[in-house]
Simulated assay, not measured.
Amino acid sequence: MLDQPILLMAQAAPAGEPSGTSQILVGIMPWLLIFVIFYFLMIRPQQRRVKQHQAAIAAVKKGDQVITGGGIRGKVVKVSDDEAEVEIAKDVRIRVIKSTISHVLDPATKPAND
């Protein structure tokens, strides 16, 4: 009697089929591959852009041309730790939080209508 259940168990798992652990690995492998592709195509470049933006904002100095998040273009006249004073027209100055500055422009960049 004891020999029959062992025989049935041996027949239930043929030698050619993968075991439970390898089936799990085969099932997980496509998801890991998709994550690696997303990391290198989307996440890593976005992290690099964020670091460059933070470095540019931290390096803002007097005389830089900037564009705020609201689309206002102006010249930085004063910089403090977390704020910048931007001149948007002659004798019109606004104080903006430095994190709302979206672009720091090159000195050679001119507005389209000048």
Results as ranks from 00 to 15, higher is better:
residue 67 I to F: 00
residue 39 Y to F: 14
residue 58 A to K: 09
residue 72 I to C: 01
residue 58 A to P: 15
residue 78 K to Q: 04
residue 69 G to I: 05
residue 47 Q to E: 13
residue 60 V to K: 06
residue 82 D to A: 07
residue 65 Q to Y: 06
residue 69 G to T: 01
residue 39 Y to I: 15
residue 59 A to M: 11
residue 66 V to M: 02
residue 68 T to P: 01
residue 64 D to H: 02
residue 50 V to Y: 09
residue 46 Q to W: 13
residue 81 D to V: 07
residue 74 G to C: 00
residue 44 R to Y: 12
residue 47 Q to I: 15
residue 47 Q to H: 09
residue 79 V to Y: 06
residue 80 S to M: 06
residue 68 T to N: 04
residue 70 G to A: 14
residue 79 V to K: 00
residue 70 G to R: 12
residue 49 R to W: 06
residue 79 V to H: 07
residue 68 T to R: 06
residue 74 G to M: 05
residue 58 A to G: 03
residue 83 E to R: 11
residue 42 M to G: 14
residue 66 V to C: 02
residue 74 G to S: 04
residue 56 A to S: 01
residue 54 Q to H: 01
residue 42 M to R: 12
residue 75 K to P: 00
residue 40 F to E: 13
residue 79 V to M: 07
residue 51 K to H: 07
residue 39 Y to N: 11
residue 42 M to S: 15
residue 78 K to G: 08
residue 55 A to F: 11
residue 55 A to P: 08
residue 79 V to D: 01
residue 39 Y to M: 10
residue 61 K to L: 00
residue 56 A to G: 03
residue 49 R to F: 03
residue 62 K to R: 10
residue 59 A to S: 15
residue 56 A to Y: 04
residue 56 A to T: 06
residue 82 D to R: 12
residue 67 I to R: 02
residue 71 G to F: 04
residue 70 G to L: 04
residue 40 F to N: 14
residue 46 Q to K: 06
residue 49 R to A: 07
residue 43 I to R: 08
residue 40 F to D: 12
